[in-house]
Design a protein around this nucleic acid. Structure first.
Length: 203
DNA sequence: GTCTAGATGGCCT
DNA sequence: GGCCATCTAGACA
C-alpha cells in the first residue's frame, strides 16, 4: 500500500497559533485512505476560524454543541460538517478549550487522480478539488472522519513541498457575508497563482 | 415539535 | 448573475 510512503506530520506541527497553522498548512499533503484506494493532494488554500470572538466561526461566543465539540479538543483533529449537499473539512487548532479551526478550501491533485475523477464524475483536472466541497468528495472525506486525527491513517496531513518560490497571498474569507465585522478579517491564505485555488468571485 | 439559514456546487439563462 | 438541491444544527416554543 502506498500509504506508507507518506510521513504523517508530527503532532507538534499543529500546536501553533491558528493563523500560523493556516499559513503552514499550505504545501502540505492531505491524504485519505479508503477501500477504494489512496487519494492525496497538496493544500493550496486555507481559512482560519478563530473561536469565541469570530462571528463567522461556528464556535462564535463559545458555542459548544454536538457539532462544535471537537473544536474544543486537541489541535490536529478533524472537524467535518455538512454544508448543503456537501461535507467540509477543517483542521482543529488552538489549545484545549480554545475552539479554533482551519478550513481546507482547495488542494492540488497529486495522487489517486483517477479515483478522484471517478468520485467527482468528471475528467477536468482543474475542477476536481478547487473548492472545499469538491476536495472532500474527491478524497472520500465524509462525516465519518469527524474527530479523527490527521496524524494517523486513514486520514493524514503529511509533509509536502516547501513552497519556497511560491508566494503566499492573504485576504478576506469567502462566503461569510452576513457576519458583520468578521466578514473583512484577512484570514484566508492561498498560494499565489496556483490554478487549483477556488474561485468564487462574489463580494 | 417546527422553522430557518448556511464556511457550496452545478446547472441554467 | 440566478436558482436550488438537500439536510442538519441550533434556536425557539
Amino acid at each position: 500500500m502506498i500509504l506508507q510512503n507518506f510521513k504523517a506530520t508530527e503532532n507538534e506541527f499543529f500546536k501553533v497559533p491558528t493563523l500560523e497553522l493556516a499559513r503552514n498548512l499550505l504545501g502540505c499533503l492531505l491524504v485519505k485512505d479508503t477501500d477504494e484506494g489512496v487519494a492525496a493532494g497538496y493544500i493550496v488554500e486555507t481559512e482560519a476560524y478563530i473561536g469565541p470572538g469570530d462571528r463567522a466561526a461556528h464556535s462564535y461566543g463559545g458555542r459548544r454543541t454536538k457539532r462544535t465539540e471537537i473544536m474544543f479538543h486537541d489541535a490536529g483533529l478533524a472537524y467535518t460538517y455538512q454544508m448543503h449537499t456537501h461535507c467540509l473539512v477543517n483542521v482543529v487548532s488552538g489549545k484545549i478549550d480554545a475552539p479554533e479551526a482551519v478550513l481546507i478550501r482547495a488542494i492540488e491533485p497529486y495522487h489517486g487522480i483517477e479515483l478522484m475523477k471517478k468520485r467527482r464524475k468528471m475528467e477536468d483536472l482543474r475542477n476536481l478539488t478547487n473548492g472545499p466541497g469538491k476536495l472532500t468528495k474527491a478524497l472520500g472525506i465524509s462525516m465519518e472522519d469527524y474527530g479523527r486525527s490527521f496524524a494517523e491513517p486513514p486520514l493524514l496531513i503529511a509533509d509536502g513541498f516547501v513552497p519556497d518560490d511560491c508566494v503566499v497571498e492573504r485576504g478576506k474569507r469567502i462566503g461569510i457575508e452576513n457576519t458583520g465585522e468578521a466578514r473583512d478579517y484577512p484570514w484566508r491564505f492561498w498560494i499565489k497563482g496556483n490554478p487549483y485555488v477556488s474561485r468564487r468571485l462574489k463580494r
